[in-house]
């Protein structure tokens, strides 16, 4: 690791002020992603501001839904009685990720900001636009089995690896951010970015901004939700494809479908076309299939990941079925 100053922030204001002052500083949440990247010399902060002691750890019900503190651990969040009862989709998605040890360390804020697992991004001897803008994308014509089928650009074909965020996307969450002057709320769909011409930017957070929490509106999906994750081994592996599905049902009729996909794009991929199609239709296999096909029609595969289109279709159908069964 490159040498860095280590400072423990005393309160959110202090943390934001310190980060704002130094363009090369970084917050340290659980450290499970940042330390990994620092050891690989992908991230090179010269100052680490430990935010682990800030009191942004509360998980609670609010007037309109639920609040997750940015520094609450993934484990606590997944196991909080409120979350298990009302947002089981979120619990399940968190528990699908990483390992027990990592979830014990990982914070909710850090999880949202984890960077891609593209192996060229991690290998500093390789060209990578995300790591070194303008150096090229080694994955575009390289080993891109794990990479995107939606929304990629010639500049970057990486996928965003979080499981938790896929559920949060389906649940219409909002990210609460503290800047040096105010607080702002970022709807989930605007939080993560597609690569476009600036793959170095994963999300719409500006340097100096601190995630303080995540807000999730009330919903009626608890009884009919599912998280399906397809991966190369049965546990402790990132998704090839994952789907978070929640159905709001009136008898057999779908009032609204909430569908987001992981492992397929540079951000949680909200399957809006499928959702639109399903709205108001009966929950049948035929409709699930049609919806999945509609969604996957716009997918564009890379040389090594053509399979993800069929895998995505099947997984969407499967997740819808499981959600329907409850």
């Amino acid at each position: 690791m490159k040498p860095f100053q280590f400072i423990s922030a005393t309160n959110p204001g202090d943390a934001v002020a310190r980060l704002t002052k130094n363009p090369e500083a970084a917050f340290l949440g659980g450290g499970t992603n940042l330390l990994d990247l620092m050891k690989e010399h992908v991230s090179l902060p010269n100052e680490i501001i430990d935010i682990g002691n800030l009191s942004l750890k509360e998980i609670k019900a609010t007037a309109t839904g639920f609040h997750l503190g940015a520094l609450a651990k993934n484990t606590e969040t997944a196991n909080h009685p409120l979350i298990r009862k009302h947002l089981p989709l979120l619990s399940k998605a968190i528990l699908a990720g990483a390992s027990a040890q990592i979830r014990n360390m990982a914070t909710n804020g850090g999880n949202l900001l984890q960077r891609t697992r593209c192996s060229y991004f991690y290998d500093i001897s390789m060209p990578c636009n995300k790591r070194v803008p303008g150096s090229g994308c080694a994955a575009l014509e390289g080993f891109n089995r794990m990479h995107a089928i939606f929304g990629w650009s010639e500049q970057c074909v990486a996928v965003y690896p979080s499981d938790m965020a896929i559920a949060l996307s389906a649940l219409n969450a909002t990210v609460k951010v503290k800047t040096s002057v105010a607080e702002r709320l970022i709807p989930f769909k605007d939080f993560h970015l597609l690569p476009g011409n600036h793959p170095e930017k994963d999300n719409s957070l500006a340097h100096g901004e601190l995630i303080t929490g995540i807000e999730i509106p009330n919903n009626s999906l608890a009884a009919h939700s599912a998280y399906v994750k397809v991966r190369d081994r049965n546990s402790y592996a990132f998704a090839l494809v994952s789907v978070a599905a929640g159905l709001s049902l009136n008898g057999n009729l779908i009032q609204s479908a909430h569908l987001a996909m992981g492992g397929v794009a540079h951000k949680p991929w909200r399957a809006l076309q499928a959702e639109d199609f399903l709205k108001g239709k009966p929950a049948t296999i035929a409709n699930f299939t049609k919806a999945a096909e509609l969604e996957m029609a716009s997918a564009k595969a890379l040389p090594n990941n053509r399979f993800k289109i069929e895998m995505g279709r099947k997984t969407l159908i499967n997740a819808l079925q499981l959600a329907f069964k409850g």
Binding site: T32, L35, E40, Q101, N104, M105
Partner: peptide, 22 residues
């Protein structure tokens, strides 16, 4: 790098990876 668990220790009652803990 957090990919094997060999460094697991228990900190304040929770199992964590000591290789990713400063």
């Amino acid at each position: 790098h957090g990919q094997c668990g060999a460094c697991t220790v228990i900190v304040d009652g929770h199992r964590v990876l000591s290789c990713l803990t400063l």
